[in-house]
Design a binder for these strands. Structure first.
Lengths: 217, 217
DNA sequence: AGGCTAGTGACAGTCGCTGACAATTGACAA
DNA sequence: TTGTCAATTGTCAGCGACTGTCACTAGCCT
């Protein structure tokens, strides 16, 4: 295993430059307010080259997100078998938040990533793609969970259902974090824990008589 | 309240024609394989007119879906207050499936609608839009649920969480229905009931020891 | 050193979509 | 009925995302 040649390194640099410049322009002028021509001009490559690295203008906005997702999947694969499905997913998210910082910084500043995440949530075209990508992730996760629990994904609907419910909560978490004040990694971590704690009680037959909040006496 | 004038009726006819022709072409040649020019040529209007009725090529694919959603929301609003959140949503879906047929047929044949639904599930660009629309629906539903239960949507996360979990299951239902054999209204109804029954058990801490399926002894 | 090929740029063209303005047609009052 | 007004439509020009093609440049390998 030899280190990559000049050609390969050059490609990586171009790709990272495209991502960085794109995210900077997107967060500064908005996604729709930025043209591909502006991105490629700043990086000094042709438009054709941009579309060789990214199949669409949208895709470049998710390049970092992609890394984060791969990290989560790897983390989930390493959860101890004793944990139930929901706990495994919960702990996998939380533990991947912990070590995400450094991995991202290799490509773009963390602050830029967080702003990009909010941009995605608030830009309809990007939100749509984000949600589609999420469902693809759900399928991946469902297969891992099914494997862990020793059931057949296609015969037993529980893996997909559990994952769908979990992902739904994670999505609400991201949404609320984007709208809130504190836009730090710690804040999203705390919200994640809080909202996941609410999942089971929220599905209880009735809320009215007692406020069945997890941290209520 | 007088019946609509000629102008209004003409507009409605144009709109319906555009929807019908669009869905027929989409299901026949695929979404990307159909151009807006082909649609407008078949209906004999200018492209500009198409975009006055629909803000995008995607939107026309969801025109019927829109009706179905409005129906669900109305149905949810009429559920008896005694029903818990999850039951109210469940019954609202099921009861709106019952009367959906006639409402759709006024615009397009039911078969065409069902095929369109599958097209949406299998076309990435449409699926993305579908999911974004779904989250908008979720917000609407969450507010209704919060109102029913007498809580504040922004202070109490349970409405959004319950709705997110519910919607996640509904999405999986649609997906599985699209992939399965029996593509009838009855089939999707049955699947809906089955999958919703699985929701609570799927979130239980462990599945392994006993198959905690609702219909198992 | 020199041939090979992956990667790039330049160019032309398609398609979705929009603004501007002119032409048409239903609505409604004189 | 007819003339005026306003709503609807068509035409045209143009932008931006994206793709196929082909020539060319630059790293790679013998």
């Amino acid at each position: 295993m030899t280190l990559p040649g000049l050609r390969e390194r050059k490609k990586q640099r171009t790709r990272n430059a495209l991502i960085r410049v794109a995210l900077e322009l997107f967060t500064a002028r908005g996604y729709e307010g930025t043209t591909v021509d502006e991105i490629v001009e700043a990086v000094e490559v042709s438009q054709r080259t941009f579309f060789r690295y990214f199949s669409s203008k949208e895709e470049v906005a998710f390049a970092v997100q992609q890394m984060v997702e791969e990290r989560f999947v790897r983390s989930l694969g390493q959860r101890p078998p004793a944990e139930g499905p929901l706990d495994a997913m919960r702990n996998a998210v939380l533990s991947s938040w912990d070590t995400i910082g450094e991995a991202i910084t290799a490509v773009v500043p963390v602050g830029l990533y967080l702003r990009t995440f909010q941009l995605i949530e608030s830009t309809p075209a990007l939100l749509a793609v984000h949600l589609r990508r999420s469902t693809e992730m759900e399928e991946t996760i469902a297969r891992i969970i099914a494997e862990r629990e020793g059931v057949d994904v296609d015969a037993d609907p529980r893996p997909r259902i559990a994952v769908a419910a979990f992902s739904g909560v994670m999505r609400v978490t991201g949404q609320m974090w984007g709208r809130g004040e504190d836009q730090s990694l710690e804040a999203i971590r705390a919200l994640t824990e809080e909202y996941l704690d609410h999942l089971a009680p929220a599905l209880a037959p009735h809320w009215r008589d007692r406020r069945a909040l997890p941290d209520a006496p």
